[in-house]
Amino acid sequence: MAEIKLEDIIKPENLVFQKTKLFTDKPLSYCPGCGHGVVHRLILEAIEELGIESETIGVAPVGCSVLAYEFMNIDIAQAPHGRAPALATGIKRVYPEKFVFTYQGDGDLAAIGTAETIHACNRGENISIFFINNGIYGMTGGQMAPTTLPGMASSTSPYGRDVASMGHPLKMTELVANLPGTRFVARHAVHTPALVRKAKKAILKAFENQKENKGLSFIEIVSNCNSGWKMTPVKSNQWLTENMLEYYKLGTLKDE
């Protein structure tokens, strides 16, 4: 067999994967190893595959992903802290033919924006909500969030979260699955290739549900925050598998 050189493989006709064109040229501002980048890519790939880039309006939150509009080459509005589902409701009602999604972290969706989230889900707005849960307030320096696990150390719970005084972690996904307004509720993760592929299928389904006017799709993505957790990216993904997934079980909770 003749020796195959790398130059023979690296040719445009052999291309199997490249960065989606819906990313802008700006480098992502996230820490090395952060799951946000993967979720950004999955959403943009889903939009590209469905060919709806000119009909999609995103709503960015406050948090690490506040600058999502800098990286995603689609229309994006940036909502006040926690108000993304309310803003998305307004956008969808004015432009019912557009695809509207919110992209929120746990500080935005599960803390300050709990009311907006629950009411948007309960009204059954025809939007998609992508909820990135890393169990901590990442951008502000790793403080305890409503989603922080029992016993998990953060900068404001240095001895671990004590449920007796600090309460229990909030399972938003289970909560909204109980509401009659939601149509598709699922929890995914993006730290292994297989899980990334599964998460992409769910994100595609969330957009397809909007196309068919099926109602609200809520997808939680359990992600890491290696800077906030004070771990290396590889370690943080191990910790996520061992601890986060015990409490936040992956799977589809509701699909009607």
Binding site: N14, T20, G33, P193
Partner: peptide, 15 residues
């Protein structure tokens, strides 16, 4: 697939 910054481009051939 797992690269958070999508810095990897992949090529494949059948030999």
């Amino acid at each position: 697939t797992v690269c958070p910054d999508t810095v990897i481009t992949v090529y494949r051939i059948k030999v």
